[in-house]
C-alpha cells in the first residue's frame, strides 16, 4: 500500500516537472505579447518583399489567414502612407488586394477585394479623398513570393499601394 502511494507521488512529481519544463520552454520562445487591441494572428511582420513609396513609407501591409482586419503593424504603415499622400496631394494610388494560394480562386478574388477596401477606407478616414484611391483585387494570381510555404503565404496575404505607371 505504502509503496503504491509513493509511486503515485513520484509520478505526480515527474509530471509536474515535465509540465513545468514545457511551460518554461514555451515562454522562452514566445514573442513579446502584442500591446495592440488587434490580434496579429499569422500576419507577416518582417520586412522582406516590402518596397517603399518614399523613404520610410512601406508600400504594403499584411493580413492573417482568411482575415481582412488591419493589424497594429498595418495601421502603423498606413499612417505613414496617409501622411505621404497628404504631403503629395496630386498623387493618386491604386490599392491592390492579394490572397495566398491556399484558397479557391473565386473566393480569393472577393477576399483580395475586401482587403484592398479596408486599406482604402483607412486612408479615407485619415483624410485622403476617396477619388484619389482605386482598388483592384488580384486574388491569388500575383504572389510576391512564389514558394509554397507558411512564410511565403504570409507574405502574399497583403495589400500593396502602388503609384500608377
Amino acid at each position: 500500500m505504502k509503496l503504491v502511494k509513493i509511486s503515485f507521488i513520484h509520478v505526480a512529481v515527474l509530471l509536474s516537472l515535465f509540465l513545468g519544463a514545457c511551460t518554461t520552454a514555451q515562454k522562452a520562445t514566445a514573442p513579446a505579447p502584442a500591446p495592440a487591441p488587434v490580434a496579429e494572428g499569422d500576419a507577416y511582420t518582417g520586412t522582406d518583399t516590402v518596397k517603399f513609396l518614399a523613404d520610410g513609407v512601406p508600400d504594403r501591409v499584411f493580413f492573417s489567414t482568411n482575415k481582412f482586419n488591419l493589424t497594429t503593424a498595418a495601421v502603423n504603415s498606413l499612417n505613414k502612407q496617409a501622411a505621404f499622400l497628404k504631403a503629395n496631394a496630386n498623387l493618386n494610388v491604386t490599392v491592390e488586394g492579394h490572397a495566398d494560394e491556399r484558397g479557391t480562386r473565386e473566393y480569393n478574388l472577393a477576399l483580395g477585394e475586401k482587403r484592398a477596401n479596408v486599406v482604402k477606407d483607412y486612408l479615407i478616414s485619415n483624410g485622403i479623398a476617396s477619388n484619389r484611391i482605386k482598388v483592384v483585387s488580384y486574388g491569388k494570381e500575383r504572389p510576391a513570393n512564389p514558394a509554397s510555404s507558411a512564410l511565403a503565404w504570409s507574405q502574399n496575404r497583403r495589400s500593396v499601394t502602388v503609384r500608377p505607371n
Partner: peptide
C-alpha cells in the same frame, strides 16, 4: 456572377 462593391461581394 459576383459583383464586388466597396469590399462586399
Amino acid at each position: 456572377m459576383s459583383f464586388a462593391k466597396d469590399g462586399n461581394s
